[in-house]
Amino acid sequence: MARMRYQAALARALRDEMTADPSVFILGEDVRASLRGVSRGLVADFGRQRVIDTPISEQAFTGFAMGAALAGHRPVVEFQIPSLLFTAFEPIVNQAQKFRLMTGGQAKVPVTYIVPGSGARRGLAAQHSDHPYALFAQAGVKTVVPATALDAYGLFLSAIRDDDPVVLFAPAAVLGTREEAPEQPEAVPLGDGRVHRAGDDVTVVAIGHLVHDALAVAQELAEDGISVEVWDPRSILPFDWEGLRASVEKTGRLVVFDDTNRTCGLAGEVLATAAEEFPLAAPPRRVTRADAPIPFAVELEEALLPSRAQLAAAVRGVLDREVVR
């Protein structure tokens, strides 16, 4: 067992799939030089036909990937900045995602869109700090947010192999993290959650980099005798509702820790489903990003992002409030 670095895991997944499947290629801005490390070294081994630098034309290169996919390829499109997805929302959500339905299943559209470095990164300010995974899930696009190196490897592999469009958000805060990994890591299926830490009192749903914060909070609360289960959906769509149900049936309490805006964010959906369908012993809570763009000054940025202290308070809160049914 060696410790695998998250960013290297993404690079390895791409290299492994490009080796295994000649229809896989990557395109995007500065992918030959590999500004984000995902395609590092690939141009030397696979050539410029499969590692394609594009002009700064997000709409066109995103639509181009769809056309190539319809013609039999498995493109990986890299976005240098998360908010660039907004400029490519049309070709992803309105074209690639809807094509199969619109054609009555005539074709598959196996495109992977990857954002290596999503979310806030201290000091990058409003236009470089978005983490818009809920937006894509809301629009029906398969969406994954790997929290660890192994999941990054396994979910990237599954995304590339999937016959539908998939967006992969790699949170900036975890790109440098490491995880014990076997010689040959495996694919992680879409729609399969992961229990990072088992517990009995409260289920904490944590996504992406917040998994690591949730684990730290769980450790801290354990010292007070509070047993937290940290559950990571890994895929936002499809979502592992059965996995979450199993956890909540055990704990009866739920807190969602989610770095998307509060209004219409992922946490709201999880709480709503839990309220309707799961046996809750107390009203659930959520700790999310505030409903505001990220300001520049570091203390202002931190003030709007979900924090460990907020999570600890929310966990204590759901334990305090017993509901008589």
Binding site: F64, G67, A68, L70, E90, P91, N94, Q95
Partner: peptide, 22 residues
């Protein structure tokens, strides 16, 4: 026939990708 399209000009990059793939 990679589709009629409800969005003006949206077919352009799709055709480009198909041209490249060919």
């Amino acid at each position: 026939i990679y589709g009629a399209n409800g969005i003006v000009a949206a077919g352009a990059p799709i055709a480009a990708g198909a041209a490249w793939a060919g």
